[in-house]
Amino acid sequence: MILHTLNAAPSSSAFADCLKTIAEGDAVLLMGDGVYAAIAQTEASRVLEATKATLYVLADDAMTAGVLNVSAAVSSIDIAGFVALTETFPRQQAWY
């Protein structure tokens, strides 16, 4: 069970590398430039949804980037939600 914090644009190699390592039971938190992958009906959100991971987006970062139409499969969380995820997941992998 790994918490992937994905702070990289969907066009980046970090994004592609992250996708390859996501396993069932993992969670992905989109933050920074990663929030663009939360936009509904995009190729990036579709490939993320096709993984078995639970998807989250950091609400403040999405708001800063103007990402409003978040995919229904992605839960918006605040910083307390982020801390709560790290309480649940013993390991974190940062992608950037």
């Binding site: 702070n7 933050m31 920074g32 430039d33 950091l58 403040d60 970062d61 800063t64 910083i79 307390a80 982020f82 801390v83 709560a84 790290t86 309480e87 950037y96």
Partner: peptide
């Protein structure tokens, strides 16, 4: 908790997010 900060505070919000994370972790 310990945190590793690789982000510049002058590019993006990651350094500020990390500080907010630390404050919130302490509050919890």
């Amino acid at each position: 908790y310990s945190l590793l900060i690789l982000s510049s505070p002058f590019s993006g919000d990651c350094s500020r997010t990390a500080a907010a994370f630390a404050r919130c972790a302490i509050a919890r």
